[in-house]
Design a binder for these strands. Structure first.
Length: 430
RNA sequence: GGUGGGGUGGCCGAGUGGCUAAUGGCAGCAGACUGUAAAUCUGCCGGGUUAACGCCCUACGAAGGUUCGAAUCCUUCCCCCACCA
């Protein structure tokens, strides 16, 4: 693929929000090195970061060199961009641990071999060893406070207050850009739309210090058409770390994408061609109930993030929970997948058995012990509302207890369900 | 340092001595309709206990106090904001 086409590709995918004037000609002139920074504020990236990784991947596919920067240094400070309040500082250990985890996740999206081989950098490398006086003279001198106060990230905080620490963040990021320009010849910085101010500060610094022309491009904020925050579920953020968000839950997140959003998401989060995406969009219009676009999206993203075998397991678990499969007829192999991939909790028989009649499950206890319900009151409400199922059989509000014999799978398991989507496999210890 | 305003449930935001587990909105959960979609409609939405009515506990920044009774009054402390210095 030609280096020139990347901007056009990013445009039709809707991944361009704002850019400096010279970007097009710079990309056309040949391979450029471009970077995006990821601050290690948590021990895992989440789906919101996925867009940025995809932009790097697109650049690489078109022959440019992507540089992923982990903010081991800036993560110590906290970026005020897009934040309405001062942030809690993380400890040095937390930042270092998070940075290592984030680095590992980023590595999966990029190809580090070949002429356009990706590079991974950590700004702690230079930021932790820059003497304060040098920084103030070499970087600080190039910015007026007046200029800094104009930036959205600062201006929007003038009422709520902003510490000097966070106020300084843009200088650190500007310095990163300069440093990467020197080390790796980086001339383009990408980022979320809230990064525009920080990016332009870096461009400014490179122009003044290195006398070179650098560029910036920002990616739009991902929204859902129904106005909720993208990347959030009932359980919170959707993480890339399988320990935090299971591949099954991850797959389900994408699969339940609304029709109105699925076309955009295919553009943002997959590498599928324009023709493929347009045909899936057409399929969503003509046969929405088939959910072909959602399935393709879920498969593609889960596969890239978690790998082929995790995807297969997620699909099997989904097929069981959402299909017509009878839990008593599961094959050994299918059950093994369910056992290892589905939400899973153990409980002692004593804690879920009913007083009377003998050898019965207390339905409310099954709900609380499996953590499907948060409290007894919650469990009671669910049951009264008809939202409870065991082994996919709906339980009537009057049935406070059910015979063990009728509901035990493989001598030790029960599938506890709430509503149509929320299931947990409970193992009973007798 | 001074003056003024404020801290209420996941969030926003009413409430200014009993009718307040605390109006309302958002978010969330369940049901109906569907396509594991959206929208819409209905119900729920602190915890324990009860078949249920109910009872008990915890909660309105923190700790004390006044009162038969406090989110509401008083005292001290902590925190936030605005203006002034």
């Amino acid at each position: 693929m030609k280096t020139t086409d990347v901007l056009e590709e990013l445009r039709w995918r809707g991944l361009v929000y704002q850019h400096t004037d010279g970007v097009a000609s710079a990309l056309a002139a040949g391979p450029v090195s471009a970077y995006i920074g990821f601050d290690p504020t948590a021990s895992s990236l989440h789906v919101g970061h996925l867009v940025q990784s995809m932009v790097l991947a697109h650049l690489q596919r078109h022959g440019h060199r992507p540089v992923a920067l982990v903010g081991g240094g800036t993560g110590m400070i906290g970026d005020p961009s897009g934040k309405s309040a001062e942030r809690q500082l993380l400890t040095a250990e937390q930042v270092a641990g998070n940075a290592a985890a984030v680095r590992g996740q980023l590595e999966r999206f990029l190809d580090f071999s070949g002429p356009a081989g990706a590079r991974m950098r950590d700004n702690a490398t230079w930021l932790s060893h820059t003497p304060l006086i040098d920084f103030l003279r070499d970087v600080g001198k190039h910015f007026t406070v007046n200029y800094m106060l104009q930036k959205d990230s600062v201006r929007s905080r003038m009422d709520a207050g902003i510490s000097f620490t966070e106020f300084s963040y843009m200088l650190l990021q500007a310095y990163d850009f300069l440093e990467l320009h020197r080390r790796d010849g980086v001339t383009l910085q990408l980022g979320g739309s809230d990064q525009w101010g920080n990016i332009t500060a870096g461009i400014e610094l490179i122009r003044r210090v290195a006398g070179a022309e650098a560029h910036g491009l920002t990616v739009p904020l991902i929204t859902t058409s129904s106005g909720t925050k993208f990347g959030k579920t009932e359980a919170g953020a959707v993480w890339l770390d399988p320990e935090r968000t299971s591949p099954y839950a991850f797959y389900q997140f994408w699969l339940s994408t609304e029709d109105a959003d699925v076309g955009r998401y295919l553009r943002y989060f997959t590498l599928l061609s324009r023709e493929e995406i347009e045909s899936l969009e057409a399929a969503t219009v003509s046969a929405p109930e088939r959910r072909a676009a959602q399935q393709t999206l879920a498969r593609d993203v889960t596969q890239r993030v978690h790998g082929e075998s995790a995807l297969r397991a997620a699909e099997q678990v989904s097929a069981f929970f959402f299909g017509r499969a009878d839990p008593t007829e599961l094959s050994d192999e299918a059950f093994a997948v369910l056992r290892s991939e589905a939400p899973f909790v153990e409980a002692d028989f004593g804690s879920v058995s009913a007083e009377t009649p003998d050898r019965s499950f207390d339905v409310l206890r099954l709900l609380t012990e499996s953590r499907v319900a948060a409290s007894m009151g919650d469990a009671k409400r669910l049951l009264a509302q008809g939202g409870v199922s065991i082994n996919k059989r709906r339980i009537q509000p009057a049935d406070r207890s059910v015979p063990v014999a009728d509901f035990l799978l493989r001598g030790a398991y029960v599938v506890v369900g709430k509503g149509k989507k929320d299931y947990t496999l409970l193992q009973i210890r007798f």
